[in-house]
């Protein structure tokens, strides 16, 4: 068996699970959104076909939620990438045990547990748009930093001395060497932040105000508080479309 065949054989179950699970989830969500809302105790009317849940997607309430969700996506994306880049630049010069120590400090928010971190942030930050954004960014920054640290450490360590030796200032080295070489990783963290921010749920839950509802938060509210599963599913489909658009936009590269 060739290495390629062996790799495919190992990866195939995972691939089928991911693709199949995602596709099945998406199909079921779309199907659910086309049912009529349940009367009484039912979640939906079995066998029914209705666009009533979709009718409300264009109202002012939902337009506001979609806008908040998109802004959360951009906000988390930009903030987590900027903070991740700064932390990565601080961490990269360290070596050996010191580097490990710095990385543990950066990853601590994730290692300490999400809920514990958010309870802590709840005590420190005001409820509202800013608090919600900071909370989501706080959760993502360790991942962004990790991606950027890996990218920066992948840059040939001789390039900076070579550039400095040719007379480049620190700023020129950052602008002409480090920035372009870490651009793919920056694009990846922006994309990750965007997708993460679109799905913002815990931030709005712990620190959001009444006007900072995101699609993920609204889906939870519709499904579990109000029992309107078809409407929650319609909102879920909107969120899937937004996420897919973000993924597609992030993966787009100009033709050379």
């Amino acid at each position: 068996m060739t290495l390629l065949r062996a790799s495919i054989a190992i990866l195939l179950p995972t691939l089928l699970l991911v693709v199949g699970g995602t596709a099945a989830g998406a199909i079921l969500t779309v199907r659910m959104s086309l049912h009529a809302p349940g009367a009484g105790a039912g979640l939906f009317e079995p066998g029914s076909v209705s666009l009533s849940s979709w009718a409300s997607m264009g109202d002012a309430h939902h337009r506001g939620i979609v806008l908040t969700t998109i802004l959360a996506g951009w906000g988390v994306s930009l903030l987590s990438t900027a903070i991740g880049a700064l932390l990565a630049l601080l961490a990269v010069p360290f070596a050996g045990l010191r580097f490990m120590g710095v990385m543990v400090l950066i990853l601590a928010p994730r290692l300490s547990g999400v809920i514990a971190s958010l309870f802590g942030l709840q005590r420190l930050l005001p409820r509202g748009w800013i608090g919600s954004l900071i909370a989501e960014t706080w959760l993502l920054v360790p991942y962004s930093t990790l991606i950027l640290v890996i990218a920066l450490r992948g840059i040939d360590p001789h390039l900076v001395p070579a550039a400095r030796g040719l007379g480049a200032s620190r700023w020129q080295v950052l602008r002409w060497i480090i920035w372009p070489l870490s651009l793919p990783a920056v694009a990846l963290t922006l994309q990750l932040g965007w997708v993460w921010g679109l799905g913002a749920f815990l931030g709005p839950l712990f620190l959001g105000g009444p006007d900072q509802s995101t699609l993920a938060f609204e889906i939870h509210h519709e499904a579990f508080d109000l029992g309107r599963w078809p409407r929650a599913a319609a909102e879920g489909v909107v969120l899937m479309v937004l996420t897919a658009s973000a993924m597609a936009a992030g993966s787009w590269r100009p033709r050379p």
Partner: peptide, 20 residues
Amino acid sequence: VPPGKRNTGMVFQNLALFPH
């Protein structure tokens, strides 16, 4: 004197060409 102000040129063992 810092490297960039010495007016020396260096060819590194791995060349260290800027790949981009």
